[in-house]
């Protein structure tokens, strides 16, 4: 595993992953594995290669008080740490999704229709 490659992905994922997590939590409290699954499904495995990469982002969001966490029991009676969106998290998500949408639209305009590059 090379440092440089890892760094590249981190740069790409900063912010992106945060928004995805917050977005996932909008439907209610969820534990780490649930969030990972949801993100993988909704992004066709593009944005989260390893589940483990989710946890630094969760920690960061928790430190920023955008989400809160509590140990609980899952449907199949297993213990899990559940993450809940806070009020600040909800506001942050609204702001960030808007920003990402604008950014994505702008990038799409600049790059034009998708072309295969040689």
């Amino acid at each position: 595993m090379s440092t440089r490659e890892d760094n590249d992905r981190l740069v790409l994922m900063q912010g992106t992953l945060d928004v995805l997590i917050l977005r996932t939590l909008i439907f209610g409290p969820e534990h780490g594995q649930g969030i990972a699954r949801a993100i993988q499904q909704s992004s066709d495995d593009e944005l989260l290669v390893e589940h483990g990469a989710l946890y630094p982002a969760l920690q960061r969001l928790e430190a920023q008080k955008l989400i809160s966490a509590k140990w609980g029991t899952s449907a199949n009676n297993r213990r899990a740490r559940y993450y809940t969106l806070t009020k600040a998290g909800r506001e942050h998500l609204a702001k960030q999704s808007n920003r990402w949408r604008r950014l994505a639209a702008a990038m799409a305009r600049v790059l034009g229709p998708e072309t295969e590059q040689g």
Partner: peptide
């Protein structure tokens, strides 16, 4: 970063463990 949690390494290990169990069960 502000507000470093007083969460222990063990607590985190437990979470990872739970994650793996959930995933395994799911698979």
């Amino acid at each position: 970063m502000a507000n470093w949690r007083r969460r222990s390494d063990d607590d985190f290990s437990e979470e990872v463990h739970a994650h793996l169990e959930h995933e395994t069960a799911r698979l």
